[in-house]
Amino acid sequence: MTDRSREIEACIPDLRRYALVLCRDRDEADDLVQDTLERALSRWVLRRPGGALRPWLFAIQRNLFLNARRRDARSRRLFAPGGEFEGEAGAPPEAALELRQTLEMIDTLPETQKSALVLVAIEGFTYAETAAIMGVAEGTVMSRLSRARAHLRKLGDAPSGGSRLRRVK
């Protein structure tokens, strides 16, 4: 196996996680990851020399997702919030519930805020890397994060609908 394959393969678990957060369906998510990998391998020559691999792969994946969503918005139910994914089979029920609630919670955000939050908080990208992935300025990433958090705080405070989503300790 070449270094390049090894380097790409090391990113696959993270790409699958991000895809799942975007698509909320395991098969759709893996289709998206597969498209991303095909795209990356067949367009390897177009890569900016010296550019970091992981942000590049995430940028391709997000753009493919947005294109597909735009394309399918009218014709199919795909990518509608509230997909079927409710955790891996065999996970303990409390973990599955927590996972579902967390996914539902971040699904109340617009994609731009959700991606900013997930890329920074879960994937550990810097603001600069996240800005490059999303094709926006660093300040935009920070204000999206700030708005996402304000919204989720308000959701946690809401007396009715939001209480279901509040963390149970």
């Binding site: 196996m1 394959s5 790409i8 393969e9 696959i12 678990p13 993270d14 699958r16 996680r17 799942l20 957060v21 893996d30 990851v33 597969q34 990998l37 391998l41 891996e88 927590e98 996972l99 967390t102 996914l103 971040i106 939050l117 997930v118 908080a121 879960i122 958090r149 989720l152 705080r153 963390r167």
Partner: peptide
């Protein structure tokens, strides 16, 4: 705390074994 929750809950989503069709080869 929200960051912690996201990492703790969604982090493990990457742990599932990679299906054959997603192997680079």
């Amino acid at each position: 705390a929200l960051n912690e929750r996201l990492r703790a809950t969604l982090g493990p989503l990457g742990d599932a074994p990679i299906p054959d069709r997603l192997r680079v080869e």
